[in-house]
Design a protein around this nucleic acid. Structure first.
Length: 850
RNA sequence: GCGAAAGUGGCGGAAUUGGCAGACGCGCUGGACUUAGGAUCCAGUGGCCUUGCAGCCGUGCGGGUUCGAGUCCCGCCUUUCGCACCA
């Protein structure tokens, strides 16, 4: 009987679904394993690149189940968001219908891949039963001052009268209508993530099983720096200017001060300047530049004509404006220490400002003007403060401590910790999201929607033209509401929430996803969280993972969980790339694959030779591999095995259509040898070496088990291929010992997480009871792994000159006797003086001769 | 510029602690089967010299440590990723 994946795969998919095999009772006892793939945004079409992510999770899930863990593997939909709204505008489909039909398609695709999710816990963020708890959470945060309204600059399209996400702004213009986008200050809702900056930063050190890369990215994003705020008196205004510095120990070298052009003191400082108009013009020019533009235009500054007093040297230092000082960070003002800071140095050289060295390697001569270029790079461990009064001779850490204490003692500042992290702007002037549950009443002010009135449901009867801004704002029935306090007429908030709010706590909701009385069950969540294995793309390294960590902590602080960190282990799978083709004559635009002809190994469209480029699969590059055809031809098991075999899972991998055949052949061989082995009923003396094969089996069990724990799926599969090759050789050699059945069964079990359908089918054909999925993972017996004979490599002067076989375990004297009696080896040693002999137990002998 | 990771056949990639480099797979070559193609099966496949052989060379480049280096150390080169005027 031929291997026909087309027949057996749907059969098992139905059986698993019928048996509700992946449904788990979260209250039942057992050692829990919470496995979670990041829930997808249902955009409709899943390609083999997406498949890698889910197949990887499914293999892991099946493995842990077979290892006897109570494994939970739920799935849901990150179903709010802009693409649905754009589809509505472009194609006249309601975002809800578009989303729901995509969900149905993707769910079907998961089934075709043979992926087992516990669908009884399915959730979708666009479902009022889900988003009402978003709203509830918002209210809890609002009541604790963690949600607030504030002004923030947003991208505003004056033509479409709407706010645009950064991604929708292309070269400063609206992606839809092409008008120049403006920066506008609007009232927006924020979550106060900055209150948690310190805890989110500190806890990163305890996330042992997170990729270092992600932790570094989060650390940079939070951007903690320890330093001091120090006031510099300004005689002309009588108001001191406060600077932030991480190096207060260099204050004796602060020879000038630089303010951001937007600094609030600037107008007063330049008011009586003879060229104040020119300076204002310059300020406006800088203001309109992005940070990137400012950096590209180089350092520029203007002297205000005013001076501040350095509180430690008591010197007057000039106050400058500089385009490299950012108002958003610190106090928007810096003390410049040109001798020890690259940027200050460049600025000082450009404008001829004075430079004073205040840190030097101890005992070194004072740097000359020529060597000043190096002064700011002093990283010498022995560097100490000089020309610095009370801190002379101290190393930087001690000097920082002492000078900070002195600043506090004098009452001119304090030690501070600052973060780059800003509060999380959650307002979106968009329809397809969770309505923010707030009400504006002219008499009573800003009010929360009472909990009993949740959810605030998103109305469905709105028109989508893409022109009039947020459709919600024009929906009278939605906007007009009675004030919950005075009963008078009031207006609803029409902003919706950033979809990252939805994804910041869904992992907890899965545990009791149908509970309509509370956000989740605290006891159960305490049992099941944190997620044991979280799997998703590196693109979520910062935003999603940081927001989820933040919200998890707020839930903890609300007394709803004991859990502070939501994800114990994190794994980022690599993307799958494929060649796409560009047309050099058509401005290098991507060419659809069906227009590409291949001749002599090169790609053409007509007579134009196309340029091949390897990149992440995406529709816009026409390089996606849809799984349908592949599954039709070779089956889902082949795709699964190939996808996990292709490369280590964390690495980027290049898809090769030819490579797939290898996985198919492997499964075909497993199938064929299975039908052959089934016929072996009783032990008959063949010529094969069954003991060797059994040893190989135990070694493979040991290896595959360890490789599962380390996510080394590619080598796990290759060692299964080796075992299957060994079985094939045994059969070819005429081996017919009935114990081959045990070896084969173990192979099937280990193969199951990768190729679930074929292994279930063969398991059934073998007359085994139940699903192979619910069978017990094989255990390696160390005693049976051991070889009877070991081969020891013999080197002479480090070069391989022979091999000897000795009984295992190898005794040193036996090995040495064998070396001495081996003619071939002795020929290499003959006539030379043996300097020494090195024996590496069980591995090799190296004879060193002269 | 700063930080991190990585460079191994024609390709994807293997190689616990330094110990037979190239497992496994693709591709390729030859053969079997076939009217033929495909599929399948068998054999071979880093380079060089060879009748042959565990002879020589070989893990980005240059040095070093060691009986022995893909692996450790120093110095370069290249690629990828992250951060980027954050005071």
């Amino acid at each position: 009987m031929q291997y026909q994946p087309r027949d057996i795969e749907p059969k098992w998919q139905k059986k698993w679904a019928g048996a509700k095999i992946a449904e788990i009772d979260v209250t039942a006892p057992g050692e829990k394993f919470y496995m979670l793939n990041m829930f997808p945004y249902p955009s409709g079409d899943l390609h083999v690149g997406h498949g890698r992510n889910y197949i990887l999770g499914d293999a892991l899930y099946r493995y842990f189940r077979m290892r006897g863990r109570a494994a939970l593997n739920p799935m849901g939909w990150d179903a709010f968001g802009l693409p649905a709204e754009n589809a509505a505008i472009k194609r006249g489909i309601h975002p809800r219908d578009w989303t729901l039909s995509n969900i149905a398609r993707e769910k079907k695709q998961f089934e075709r891949w043979g992926i087992l999710y516990d669908w009884s816990k399915e959730l979708a963020s666009c479902d009022p039963a889900y988003y009402r708890w978003n709203q509830w959470l918002f209210l809890q945060l609002y009541q604790r001052g963690l949600a607030y309204r504030g002004k923030a600059p947003v991208n505003w399209c004056p033509q479409d009268l709407t706010v645009l996400a950064n991604e929708q702004v292309i070269d400063g213009r609206c992606e839809r209508c092409g008008s120049v986008v403006e920066q506008r200050e609007l009232s927006q809702w924020f979550f106060k993530i900055t209150d948690y900056a310190d805890r989110l930063d500190a806890a990163l050190d305890r996330l042992e099983h997170w990729p270092e890369k992600v932790k570094v990215m989060q650390r940079n994003w939070i951007g903690k720096s320890i330093g001091a705020d120090i006031d510099f008196p300004v005689p002309s205004s009588g108001r001191p200017i406060r600077v932030f510095t991480t190096r207060p120990d260099t204050i004796f070298g602060a020879t000038f001060m630089v303010l951001a052009p937007e600094h609030p003191e600037v107008p007063a400082l330049i008011a009586d300047h003879p060229q104040s108009t020119a300076i204002e013009e310059w300020i406006n020019g800088v203001r309109n530049q992005s940070n990137l533009e400012r950096q590209e235009s180089g350092k520029e500054g203007r002297f205000t004509g005013k001076y501040a007093i350095n509180p430690f040297t008591n010197e007057e230092i000039p106050i400058w404006l500089g385009n490299f000082v950012l108002m958003q960070y610190g106090t928007g003002a810096i003390m410049s220490v040109p001798a020890h800071d690259q940027r200050d140095f460049e600025f000082a050289k450009q404008y001829g400002l004075s430079i004073r060295v205040v840190i030097q390697p101890s005992g070194a001569p004072a740097p000359s003007a020529a060597s000043l270029e190096e002064a700011f790079t002093v990283k010498d461990e022995s560097a100490v403060a000089v020309n610095s009064g009370l801190i002379d001779g101290l190393t930087p850490p001690k000097a920082i401590e002492k000078i900070s204490d002195e600043v506090e003692r004098r009452g001119i500042g304090r030690k501070t910790i600052r973060y780059r992290l800003r509060d999380w702007l959650i307002s979106r002037q968009r329809y397809w999201g969770t309505p923010i549950p707030m009400i504006y009443c002219d008499r009573c002010g800003i009010l929360t929607v009472p909990e009993k009135d949740l959810p605030v449901t998103l109305p469905l009867d709105v028109p989508f033209t893409g022109r009039e801004g947020n459709p919600l704002a024009n929906h009278e029935a939605f906007v007009n509401v009675k004030c919950p306090q005075c009963g008078g007429s009031a207006r609803r908030e029409t902003d919706t929430m950033d979809t990252f709010v939805d994804s910041s706590w869904y992992y907890a909701r899965f545990i009791s996803s149908h509970d309509s009385t509370k956000i989740f069950d605290t006891n159960l969540v305490n049992r099941w969280l944190p997620v044991d294995q979280y799997i998703g793309g590196i693109e979520h390294a910062i935003l999603h993972l940081l927001y989820a960590r933040f919200i998890c902590r707020t839930l903890h602080d609300l007394g709803l969980t004991r859990i502070e960190e939501p994800f114990a282990r994190l794994f980022n799978q690599g993307v799958i790339t494929k060649e796409g083709y560009r047309d050099p004559l058509q401005n290098m635009s991507w060419v659809p694959l069906d227009e590409v002809e291949f001749r002599n190994g090169k790609a053409y469209r007509g007579r134009t030779e196309l340029v091949a480029e390897v990149g992440k699969m995406s529709k816009s590059r026409f390089n996606v591999v849809p799984p349908d055809e592949l599954i039709e031809k070779y089956g889902a098991d082949t795709e699964r095995v190939y996808t996990l075999f292709i490369a280590p899972p964390e690495k980027e991998a290049a898809w090769s259509d030819e490579g797939v055949i290898g996985a198919y052949r492997f499964l075909g061989r497993v199938w064929t040898m299975g039908t052959q082995i089934m016929d072996i009923q009783t032990s008959t003396n063949g010529t094969g070496d069954i003991d060797r094969l059994i040893r190989k089996m135990h070694q493979t069990i040991d290896g595959v088990t360890r490789r599962f724990e380390r996510f080394e799926f590619n080598t796990a599969i290759s060692s299964l291929m080796e075992l299957s090759n060994a079985i094939g050789e045994y059969l070819a050699a005429g081996g017919r010992d009935a114990r081959i059945r045990d070896v084969y069964t173990a192979l099937l079990q280990m193969l199951h997480p990768f190729a679930p359908h074929i292994t279930e089918e063969l398991w059934e054909m073998y007359g085994r009871k139940g699903f192979i999925l619910t069978s017990k993972w094989p255990v390696a017996d160390p005693a049976l792994m051991r070889e009877d004979v070991v081969t020891i490599v013999v080197q002479v002067n480090g070069k391989l000159r022979g091999q000897i076989e000795v009984p295992n375990p190898p005794a040193e004297d036996v090995v040495m006797a064998a070396v001495r009696s081996n003619e071939r080896i002795q020929n290499w040693v003959a006539g030379k003086e043996v300097v020494k002999t090195i024996y590496v137990p069980g591995k090799l002998v190296n004879v060193v001769v002269r």
